[in-house]
């Protein structure tokens, strides 16, 4: 990052290649919208480039990057809420999708292994459960799960105290459990938005 700070564009590109999938994964699961996530990811890298001079040597780059990323996601969320936008992007076979029978028929006809559908099912349900968390819980969960960040790193990234992160993650995980267990035990798909607390 120090080389990027010194205007080394090639190194910037290397950083981008290294982190772009992680950033877009975070944004996609955070916003629930692939196209929006791509736009926001571009915004993130633009901000990284613009803010390169502010990077403090010694700071962990991924923490700095995800601070920017979570701020971009948070701002996008707020502006969507202000505009009362809704997510119109369906998923292939997920809870918001339109083609469950096609998927099942594909399985039945042996075009893809049955196990692939099982995983797709679980993935969709889990995706929906993550979407049911509030914005802060979702960000903390994604940073913890996908980025493997410690509580201290998440706290730094999200600008909160370690204790607050501890409580936030605990609430998030109990909420996830509440939403996912009916599926695991009973087959009921999770409900969106109802159960996430509003803290």
């Amino acid at each position: 990052m120090l080389e990027v700070r010194d205007d080394n564009a090639a190194t910037f590109e290397e950083l981008m290649l290294r982190y772009q999938n992680r950033v877009i994964t975070f944004l996609e699961h955070h916003t629930g919208n692939h196209e929006l996530a791509k736009d926001l990811a571009q915004d993130v890298f633009m901000r990284v480039w613009r803010a390169r001079k502010d990077y403090v040597p010694g700071a962990k780059f991924s923490t700095w990057l995800f601070t920017i990323t979570s701020n971009v996601a948070k701002n996008a969320q707020r502006s969507r809420s202000r505009r009362h936008e809704v997510n119109l992007e369906g998923r292939d076979s997920g809870p918001l999708g339109v083609r469950p029978l096609e998927a099942m028929a594909q399985v039945s006809s042996g075009q893809i292994p049955a196990r692939a559908l099982d995983r797709a099912e679980v993935r969709d349900v889990v995706w929906m459960a993550v979407q049911s968390l509030n914005e802060r819980q979702r960000a903390a969960v994604l940073l913890s799960k996908f980025e493997g960040m410690s509580y201290a790193e998440i706290a730094e990234t999200m600008g909160m105290s370690v204790q607050a992160i501890k409580s936030l993650l605990s609430r998030a995980r109990t909420n996830l459990r509440e939403v996912l267990e009916p599926y695991f035990d009973f087959g009921s798909p999770p409900e969106t938005s109802d159960d996430a607390d509003s803290s």
């Binding site: 699961h29 996530a37 679980v122 993935r123 889990v126 459960a129 799960k145 995980r173 996830l176 267990e181």
Partner: peptide, 17 residues
Amino acid sequence: RLERTWDALDELERIEV
């Protein structure tokens, strides 16, 4: 049960651009 739901998040897709 907490562990089980946390493990389930491994199923979430890793996006590749």
